[in-house]
Amino acid sequence: TQVHVDGVTYTFSNPEEAKKFADEMAKRKGGTWEIKDGHIHVE
């Protein structure tokens, strides 16, 4: 599962880990995350 944050791609083999990471990054940025085309995007 790929997580895209500010133009950087992080790859996780476990989708649950990817979601936890996205959640943390979104909180830090004061933003949100969503799943697009099977990838997670942090806004």
Rank of each mutant, 00 (worst) to 15 (best):
A18Y: 01
K20Y: 08
A18T: 01
K29G: 11
E16I: 09
A22C: 04
K27H: 08
V5S: 06
T1E: 03
R28L: 13
V3I: 03
K19S: 08
A22I: 02
K29E: 08
E34R: 08
D23Q: 12
D23F: 07
K29C: 15
P15N: 09
D23I: 13
D23W: 06
K29Q: 09
F12G: 01
K27E: 08
F12D: 00
K20F: 09
Q2M: 13
P15W: 15
K36H: 14
K36T: 10
T32C: 15
H39C: 15
K19H: 10
G7Y: 05
H41A: 05
E34L: 10
G38A: 04
I35G: 06
V8E: 12
D37E: 08
N14Y: 07
T32Q: 12
D37I: 02
E34I: 13
D6H: 06
G7D: 10
V42Q: 02
T1F: 11
G38C: 08
T9I: 15
S13C: 15
F21E: 00
E43R: 14
E24M: 11
V42A: 02
M25K: 04
T1S: 06
D37L: 04
T11K: 08
H41C: 14
R28A: 14
S13P: 11
V8Q: 12
D23C: 14
D23M: 12
G7E: 07
K29S: 14
N14Q: 07
A26D: 02
V5Y: 09
K19C: 15
A22E: 02
S13Y: 11
N14L: 08
V42P: 02
H4D: 05
N14F: 07
K27S: 08
K36C: 15
P15G: 08
A22V: 03
I40S: 01
K20H: 10
K29D: 09
K19T: 10
F12K: 00
V3Q: 00
V42I: 12
K19E: 11
P15V: 14
K29W: 15
V42C: 04
N14P: 00
T11N: 11
T32V: 10
K27T: 09
D37S: 04
V42M: 06
D23R: 07
E16T: 09
T1Q: 05
Q2Y: 13
D6A: 07
V5M: 11
D37Q: 04
G38E: 04
E43V: 15
T9M: 13
E34P: 05
T11R: 07
D37G: 06
A26S: 06
A18W: 01
T9A: 08
T9L: 09
K36L: 13
P15I: 15
H39W: 06
G7T: 04
R28Q: 14
V42G: 02
A26T: 08
R28I: 13
V8W: 12
K27R: 12
E17Q: 09
G7V: 01
I40N: 01
S13M: 11
I35K: 05
H4T: 07
H39L: 10
I40L: 05
G31A: 05
G7H: 07
G31Q: 03
H41F: 15
K19D: 03
K29P: 05
E34F: 15
A26Q: 03
F12C: 12
E16Q: 09
F12H: 01
T32K: 14
D37F: 05
K36S: 09
D6Y: 05
T1A: 06
V42H: 02
S13E: 12
G30N: 11
E34G: 05
T11P: 06
H41G: 03
V8K: 13
H41W: 15
A22G: 02
M25A: 08
D37W: 05
S13W: 10
D23L: 07
G7W: 05
V3C: 03
E17P: 01
T11Q: 10
K36D: 07
M25P: 00
Q2H: 14
V42D: 02
R28Y: 10
K29F: 15
A18V: 01
A18I: 00
Y10S: 03
E16P: 03
V3N: 00
K19A: 10
V8T: 10
T11E: 11
G38L: 04
V5L: 08
A18S: 02
T32H: 15
A18G: 04
G7S: 06
A22S: 03
I40G: 02
A18E: 00
K19V: 14
K27A: 11
M25Q: 11
Y10R: 04
R28M: 13
W33K: 06
H39F: 07
N14V: 07
E34S: 05
V5K: 01
F12R: 00
T9F: 13
G31D: 04
I40T: 02
D23T: 12
E17M: 10
V42F: 10
P15S: 11
H4E: 05
T32D: 09
E16R: 06
K27W: 08
H41M: 11
G30T: 03
V8G: 05
Y10W: 07
F21M: 02
H4Q: 04
T32E: 10
N14H: 09
F21Q: 00
H41V: 14
T9N: 06
P15F: 15
E17L: 09
D6W: 04
D6L: 05
V3Y: 01
V5E: 01
W33M: 10
W33Q: 06
N14T: 11
A18C: 07
E17V: 09
K36W: 09
M25L: 09
R28D: 09
V5P: 00
G30K: 09
G38M: 04
H39G: 07
F21L: 01
P15A: 11
W33E: 05
G31P: 04
T9G: 03
G38T: 03
G31L: 07
T1D: 03
H39P: 02
K27M: 10
G38S: 04
E16C: 13
Y10M: 04
I40K: 01
H4P: 00
H39Y: 07
I40E: 02
R28E: 13
F12S: 00
S13G: 10
K27D: 07
E34M: 06
E16M: 09
H39M: 14
D6F: 06
Y10V: 08
H39V: 15
D23A: 12
H39A: 13
G30V: 01
T11I: 13
